[in-house]
């Protein structure tokens, strides 16, 4: 019974979370540039929508998502001015393979390293892939966990609406 009550409370807490507010700013966390220098996430800026995507070299759905978007990304940029910030959560085991990987795949993204998951925690990401949409004023307006083919089309529709200055709620 004790367990049941606790579980019920936790579930309630989980459900209440569905009604939590969006629209917060990107938190200020120090992560790494690909060359090893420090990058402050408060400096993620763009004159248009921003996609922030958490990924890792060992995460197949993450790579599927980012490679699928990469095929059309030039059109996305031309049409909406969107910028994609890919945050690799690879730790010391794989973080030195990130640059060869992104060059090998010819991604046109801004890629940063978060090897101890500091930014991942500040953004409340449980697991990758996890994608955020940020509006022109720097507010986080939408987020999505996991990836399956077709999700990129929903994401693009939202980017188009944001670029047009519409609210996406």
């Amino acid at each position: 019974m004790k367990y049941f009550l606790t579980l019920a409370s936790i579930t309630l807490l989980g459900i209440s979370s569905l009604f939590a507010q969006d629209g917060r700013k990107i938190p200020m966390v120090e992560i790494k540039n690909i060359d090893g220098s420090t990058f402050n996430t408060a400096d993620i800026k763009n004159d248009g929508p921003i996609i922030i995507s958490f990924w890792a070299t060992w995460c197949s759905p993450c790579k599927r998502e980012l490679n699928t978007i990469a095929e059309d990304f030039i059109d996305w940029q031309d049409d909406t001015g969107v910028k994609l910030v890919a945050i690799s959560i690879d730790d010391a085991r794989n973080m030195h393979k990130v640059k060869p990987y992104i060059d090998g795949q010819a991604w046109e993204y801004d890629v940063y390293l978060d090897p101890n998951a500091d930014f991942k925690r500040a953004m409340n990401v449980n697991n990758v892939p996890h994608t955020f949409l940020v509006d022109n004023d720097g507010n986080i307006v939408w987020q999505h966990n996991s990836y399956q083919p077709g999700d990129e089309e929903e994401l693009y529709d939202l980017v188009v609406r944001l670029a047009a200055g519409e609210s996406i709620d």
């Binding site: 010391a92 030195h96 393979k97 640059k99 060869p100 990987y101 992104i102 060059d103 090998g104 010819a106």
Partner: peptide, 17 residues
């Protein structure tokens, strides 16, 4: 000790560690 060397360009990347 941990050492790593990388070379990469568009479409190609190599890492030796």
């Amino acid at each position: 000790i941990f050492l790593s060397a990388t070379y990469s360009r568009k479409g190609f990347g190599i890492n030796v560690s």
